[in-house]
């Protein structure tokens, strides 16, 4: 191997090492967030600083504050388990009952204080046909 290839190889290895360092050693840092399933949270008693949860909005659980329309609380469910979420800010347009959401934030006293609320991008209309007549 000549000079050029060797030096390129060294740079490559250094940066790959850096990537590993960033993702593995600094796990609690600002870069990463652990994904919890809602059933995992049901048995979780400790507080969690950073959390990401996905699920569906429980029907009739959306409560928008009277004072401030940007303040909302709702439950996210998956199968039988559910967890309460508080959020302040602009809600996505697709935010409604049974919408699939991903929330990130912190978890304290069985309550998620979300800093980020995303609904699945509307790629299309899912689900059943609406205007039908049974024969």
């Amino acid at each position: 191997m000549n000079k050029v290839t060797t030096s390129i190889l060294i740079i490559f290895i250094l940066i790959v090492g850096w990537v590993f360092y960033l993702t593995n050693i600094k796990k609690d840092d600002s870069l990463t967030v652990r994904y919890y399933s809602i059933s995992e949270l049901a048995s979780e008693v400790n507080d969690i600083k950073k959390i990401k949860v996905g699920g569906y909005i429980k029907p009739n659980s959306i409560k928008i504050s009277e004072e401030d329309q940007l303040e909302v609380s709702f439950f996210v469910y998956q199968n039988k388990d559910s967890v309460e979420v508080n959020y302040y800010g602009i809600r996505p347009d697709l935010f409604k009952d049974d919408a699939e959401v991903v929330v990130s934030g912190s978890y304290k006293n069985s309550l998620i204080s979300a800093t980020e609320l995303q609904t699945k991008c509307a790629s299309r209309y899912e689900g059943d046909l609406k205007n039908i007549e049974k024969i």
């Binding site: 509307a122 299309r124 209309y125 046909l129 205007n131 039908i132 007549e133 049974k134 024969i135």
Partner: peptide, 18 residues
């Protein structure tokens, strides 16, 4: 085809966002 026991009067339509 749609299932044989229904008649579709109108389709769902494309999401307004799209």
């Amino acid at each position: 085809p749609v299932s044989s026991d229904i008649i579709v009067q109108n389709g769902n339509g494309l999401n307004p966002l799209l």
